[in-house]
Amino acid sequence: MSDKKWKVLILYASYGDGHIQVSKALHESFRRHGVDDVLMVDLFAEAHPAINAMTRYLYLKSYKVLPQVYGWLYYGTKKMPTDTLMGKWIYSFGFGKLKEIIMQERPDLVINTFPMLVMPELRKKTGVVIPAYTVLTDFELHYRWIDPLIDKFYVATEDLKEQVACVGIPAQKINVSGIPLKESFQQPIRTEEVFEKYGIDCGKKTVLIMAGSYGVLQGLKALCESVTEIPDTQVLIVCGKNKLLLHEMKHAFSMQREIKIFGYVDEIHELMSVSHCMITKPGGITISEALITELPLLFYRPVPGQERDNANFLTSKGAAMIAYKPEMLTEQIRQMLTNNKLRDSIKQAMQKLRKTNSAETVVLDILNDMEWKSPNRTLLPLTKGG
């Protein structure tokens, strides 16, 4: 690899916490490989702050109010071609701001960690060719990820590679890398130190409940009460950034030692390492974290859209279980904690899907790809007329 110092632009969006976590993981990996000039941009927030704030609010509310509406929008556009009138409008969202950033920063390459196709639109409208890479952060395909002008796609599984190839993307442009995670998930953990750090009883079976980064998992209080009825079981509740939920849970369970309550936990891999199973929203990043730690997954009432698709994919592979009713979930937890054969079967299925060192895989492949692209490439001038 040459000594060329590339300048990297990573585009993400702040709908949930996963896309920024993937971006940070890539940023860390680039720095480990001597690429220090990495700029991360929340493009939609930069381009249209008011619209972005409103749509983020509606996105989070969709988990509690009319999730079917979000599902209708998601599935209604899932296979929408890029050349339709609506498709062109959606895919050019943030165009002006991205053009401004490109003019100012002059990056050598751009990485998408959110389904946005504004980079190909920039190329079509201005003629400026900048290598563009897309890291898919789910386990099922939505067409918003795909454009033939993207140089390379990084996907979670062989199944997803097949889906992308069926859309017409050449197989050599699709790398089964897994979803990038921060470096701490690749490091060994001393579990005895984790037990002590968080005050966890090492003699009990542990159920980890992840409410999502914004604490949107439904029926949390009743769920915790039912789990603690299982003998020799303790519960770890992670409320994310939802301070109201954190306060409610602490008030409700202040006298119950077998329930530990946390807000946002940055070192979540530590809690995963000492848990026997995890109840969570089926976001792509959380799933990938569970796969790496081989922590059996239980999905409760996954909402329509990418999360339900993710959940259905994992269960079809035998790597997770889904429940839509509280009593069904409680029974699944009981089985997961008492049936070693079931746990082993799920872990074996997870091992077939897990990808280690995904951030390194993506970064090294991009750097190798950049080596054979013209080192003397120059950007065409970007004028206001575009």
Rank of each mutant, 00 (worst) to 15 (best):
T82A: 12
M119Y: 00
D36R: 02
F93T: 13
D201A: 04
A132Q: 09
T191C: 04
V274Y: 00
Y59A: 05
L353N: 06
P120K: 02
P381H: 10
K99V: 15
M249T: 15
G199F: 00
F299W: 09
G71H: 00
Y15Q: 07
M328G: 09
K97F: 08
L329A: 03
G94P: 09
S288K: 02
E307N: 08
K347H: 06
G76M: 11
G219M: 05
E140R: 15
F153A: 03
E183V: 04
I261Y: 00
S14A: 08
L314F: 08
S2M: 07
A311P: 06
P296Y: 12
R308D: 08
A320D: 12
D83V: 09
T113E: 12
K197R: 06
H269G: 13
C277R: 13
P188W: 01
P231A: 09
I146M: 04
G305M: 03
A25V: 04
M54E: 15
N368S: 13
R190G: 00
D83S: 06
N52P: 01
Q218I: 12
V362R: 02
E229N: 09
V164W: 01
I179H: 03
Y74G: 13
L109P: 02
D83M: 02
E225I: 02
V155N: 09
K61C: 15
A25W: 08
V363F: 02
F30S: 03
M336L: 08
K78F: 01
P381M: 09
D232A: 14
H142G: 14
D369L: 03
V362S: 01
F44H: 11
Y154H: 15
K182T: 05
G240N: 13
A359L: 05
Q187E: 03
V135H: 14
I102T: 04
Q348W: 05
T356S: 13
S14P: 02
Q186T: 05
D37K: 12
P107R: 10
